[in-house]
Design a binder for these strands. Sequence first.
DNA 1: TTTTGCCTTGCCGCGACGGCAAGGTCAAGA
DNA 2: TCTTGACCTTGCCGTCGCGGCAAGGCAAAA
Lengths: 130, 130
Amino acid sequence: MNIGSASQLSGLPAKTIRYYEEIGLVAPGRRDNGYRDYSEPDIHKLRFLQRARGLGFSVHDCRILLSLYEDEHRASADVKALALARIADIEQKLRELHSLKETLQTLADNCHGDDRPECPILDGLSGEPV
Amino acid sequence: MNIGSASQLSGLPAKTIRYYEEIGLVAPGRRDNGYRDYSEPDIHKLRFLQRARGLGFSVHDCRILLSLYEDEHRASADVKALALARIADIEQKLRELHSLKETLQTLADNCHGDDRPECPILDGLSGEPV
DNA sequence: TTTTGCCTTGCCGCGACGGCAAGGTCAAGA
DNA sequence: TCTTGACCTTGCCGTCGCGGCAAGGCAAAA
């Protein structure tokens, strides 16, 4: 199967698929004319990667997940640890963003937002005591 | 004032300060020996940038904010619009991350996480119906 | 035969810097 | 006075995960 079909079936751009090959994630066969030839297992791996990336796992994590996916004797604890670490990352990010939002919201709430130049947002950014 | 002191006062790495000069954000004077020479207003601008970046504004947005900051006749509405757009971005990101976390949490909850190979997380990523 | 469309490799670019190298400058101590 | 060490300069490459473009080869349709 050509890379175009693999792209459609996996939901990944062809460029991304080539990149995954370049970094050694999914190595398809080659036909005589040099075209990449994707097998069913290759497609499954690409779909797996597409979903894992969609859940925000880094390509590095995806590499580990993929090796676990292909290891019949993996321990599910190893997979769960990655998922929990990812959840912890997300929670950290959620806290940060929430805090940022609060700060911005407070600044914006105090700004009348008309054509006058007085602006508590800029005052806040400049470091003046609010 | 040398870049080292400017770095300490602004909380920005020297490399970042040089980068901001390179892209035309803060242009310090130069002394005879070629050293950058930061004035008080320069320091204020750097601190302003440090805070704005800390609130997650892109460098592009910071450029606009800085020009508004330096424009005595700005309309506060212009600043508020940027802040509200940034808040909307954050909210969007919060929704995405929250959804990701839910998905991951569900997968992780169903995974016993021991040394057996059965793993609902990998099954979920492989596209099997959960 | 020609066109059209897919495939190949390769290189540059992004954002916002970090790291390193090679060299110039300055202030302080021996 | 000399030297040391801290600071400064520019410049170039690397990051992460690709996107875009170019030049050229291959394949099926008109």
